[in-house]
């Protein structure tokens, strides 16, 4: 989930005009803050099914969007 957040944020930032290195660093740092929160929620949540749904669907959607948007970033390493 955090990986998806970092990847999607990085490509969206680059698409919006940030330098790719800056965008990668920014969303990497933000994902690092998100990660323990997600981990705690996942470990403490009552319904395991809901946890898996949010994590799996969220991750797949974010990564898919990240790959889609990457095609629109000029000069990306694709």
């Amino acid at each position: 989930m955090a990986w998806g957040f970092g990847a999607l944020g990085a490509v969206v930032g680059a698409r919006l005009g940030m330098a790719p290195a800056e965008s990668s660093a920014l969303f990497g740092l933000l994902a690092l803050l998100v990660m323990p929160v997600i981990a705690l929620w996942a470990l403490a949540a009552g319904r395991v099914g809901r946890v898996w749904a949010v994590l799996a669907v969220g991750t797949v959607v974010q990564i898919a969007l990240a790959y889609l948007i990457r095609g629109l970033v000029p000069g990306s390493g694709a």
Binding site: A7, V11, A14, P20, S24, G28, L32, S76, G77
Partner: peptide
């Protein structure tokens, strides 16, 4: 972070 969490670099730098 760039070593253990290369989400952005994988997409924007092809992992380089």
């Amino acid at each position: 972070l760039p070593v253990v969490f290369p989400a952005g670099t994988t997409l924007l730098y092809g992992g380089d």
